[in-house]
Design a protein around this nucleic acid. Sequence first.
DNA 1: CGCCCACTTGAACGTGTTCAAACGTCGTGG
DNA 2: CCACGACGTTTGAACACGTTCAAGTGGGCG
Lengths: 250, 250
Amino acid sequence: MLSSKSADNHPLVRKLQSIGALDREELEAVRQLPIVVRDIRRGHDIVREGDRPLQCCVVMEGFTLRYKVIEEGKRQILSFHTPGDIPDLQSLHLKVMDHSLAALSPMKAGFVQHADMRDLCLRYPRITSLLWRDTLIDGAIFREWLTGVGRRDATTRIAHLFCEVYARLDAIGLTEDGAARFPITQVELSDALGLTDVHVNRSLSVIKAQGLLSIKGGTLTIIDWDRLKVLGHFDPTYLHIDPAAVQEPV
Amino acid sequence: MLSSKSADNHPLVRKLQSIGALDREELEAVRQLPIVVRDIRRGHDIVREGDRPLQCCVVMEGFTLRYKVIEEGKRQILSFHTPGDIPDLQSLHLKVMDHSLAALSPMKAGFVQHADMRDLCLRYPRITSLLWRDTLIDGAIFREWLTGVGRRDATTRIAHLFCEVYARLDAIGLTEDGAARFPITQVELSDALGLTDVHVNRSLSVIKAQGLLSIKGGTLTIIDWDRLKVLGHFDPTYLHIDPAAVQEPV
DNA sequence: CGCCCACTTGAACGTGTTCAAACGTCGTGG
DNA sequence: CCACGACGTTTGAACACGTTCAAGTGGGCG
């Protein structure tokens, strides 16, 4: 589960290459996108439910999450996002945000005007397709999460989530020797998995005790990938990672 | 919650009009799409997880559902689809199906070749945008379901689902006097809501006993929309139905 | 040093599950 | 026309996974 690939310093370019192919000219067009980068502090909202943004947000460094708050004050985390992701790309075609976007860690957010994004899409249909594809993968991940929350038990869900996070980080080259930066609290885990923090704590302890993974100080380390995959019933098909972009070791 | 709109006999056209605006030429192009219609029997699969389809499926009449089966033989229903929907539109950009598509009721499925779909998109960028928008709404519905399954109790989830189904049917003109055709079993409900059929039965009985809705013989009747909405914490924003396409009664 | 935040642990509880049986209805065939 | 089977719904009772409430621990940072 290691991958070596052309390291582009632009997170968006690297991400797009992980899910599909673009030619030199198209890549250059992506690099030329006007983008304004801002530092965001951990926990701060970037866009809120009900907003009507005129720009979208590229994760340049760090991590974000999307979430909904419901009446009783409970929260459901909908997704996590890694560098290169555009977590609110949907706002290009859905005027009103139906959920919020926040920083999971201290991060750098790059803002691109919708108008510039639309220009890019009009000039490069293949970029349109690839961005569309990206939002479709987003949907595929929701389906997998829905299945987990609806039909899998706590331990399986936890294992599955770490498998997914690791696989996605690996696809964009952010893993090293089975370890990756991923600073998440147990409360956040529980809000993502539809569990309580207490129960996450107990189930996660068991997984750790079995020597499958360690998560400490913001670093996730996979100790036994094969057994973790089995425990989490993890099959990465739904991530639709371009096989051409990943070199699985023999 | 009634809507009168230009009734087009092409389900896809009607559906697209419910989520956005197209001009005369674009509508005509959609109508001209080569499409092969087939009758499908209730419960039969249309596409299966692992397939690599070269066409996508437009619901012409009746209903479909998407689902995943997990290891232990359990099933999670991911979505329901009404006439005009293209439940596997994602296959245009994601080669491998990560879930299956089946008929919820006896239905007519229209098949459109991916090649024809791509042609249409290349010639009409606004149609591309609208179809993209449609898949984004699909994603928004997944997010809402995820939130429900993750954080809401059984009664709320059930009420919410019926609100959603009714609102969507209303948007495409398939309701009449607070009633709509929607033939679903309690087992299917439970697989959609992440519950057991036994528990759905009990919770649904309570909702019926409170006089909020009736569901019998394949017909869903909303008896008290306001109270049902409150019970289900239903806010239709996430459906992103084009306000211009719906006339809410005063 | 002291506070805050995340994590940990214990014990009682409850929502939803599991297993099992019975009931009703509809369509089919004798 | 009735018997039968299939399927969906209903009901009961025991059980369990995960929750809730509460208290305590540990580490990082001002």
